[in-house]
Simulated scan of single mutants.
Amino acid sequence: MTTISRVLATDAALDLIAKLKTKHGPLMFHQSGGCCDGSSPMCYPDGDLLVGNGDVQLGEIGGCPFYMSAPQYEYWKHTELTIDVVPGRGGMFSLEGPEGVRFLTRSRLFTDAEWATLAAELESQ
């Protein structure tokens, strides 16, 4: 298994996730739409959003699964996502809204070496 992560979280995001877990229990994330930096992933109580074959789990942040739709994954599969927190309002159903902040997605392209490692891993599955 590779040590390359597709999704990471800043310390601020991890702190907020811990706070939200205390209030709401287990959580899950879904990157619903958005094509670039500045998009807001949605945070739900775990199981409140049904995921299926049309969704890809990129990994976990703060012990919470992080999903994206398969078509969106095809667009973003060459990127590492970093989830951060900024002041403002996110999606109206996302749990962080009442805190006066929103989760924010930042991205960077994988290096050629990272992508080669990930591609080889996908082929072996």
Results as ranks from 00 to 15, higher is better:
43 C>Y: 00
35 C>W: 14
65 P>Q: 05
38 G>Y: 12
98 P>E: 00
53 N>S: 13
102 R>A: 04
88 G>R: 12
79 T>C: 08
27 L>A: 02
58 L>K: 07
75 Y>R: 15
94 S>H: 06
19 K>G: 02
20 L>G: 03
84 D>H: 02
95 L>F: 05
55 D>N: 14
79 T>V: 11
83 I>R: 05
45 P>D: 00
80 E>Y: 01
59 G>S: 09
50 L>M: 10
32 S>W: 11
69 S>A: 09
61 I>K: 10
101 V>F: 07
29 F>W: 14
101 V>I: 08
77 K>L: 05
55 D>C: 13
36 C>L: 13
99 E>Y: 12
49 L>Q: 07
53 N>M: 05
34 G>C: 06
65 P>H: 07
30 H>K: 07
23 K>V: 12
59 G>C: 09
65 P>F: 06
82 T>G: 12
71 P>E: 07
16 L>I: 15
49 L>R: 15
70 A>P: 00
66 F>D: 01
90 G>L: 08
15 D>T: 15
69 S>P: 01
23 K>Y: 00
56 V>Q: 04
91 G>L: 03
98 P>W: 01
57 Q>I: 13
32 S>G: 09
55 D>W: 13
38 G>T: 10
77 K>Q: 11
37 D>A: 15
40 S>L: 04
22 T>A: 14
24 H>K: 06
92 M>I: 14
92 M>R: 08
33 G>P: 04
24 H>G: 00
57 Q>D: 00
89 R>I: 14
99 E>T: 15
93 F>T: 14
81 L>Q: 07
95 L>G: 07
18 A>D: 08
31 Q>T: 05
73 Y>Q: 04
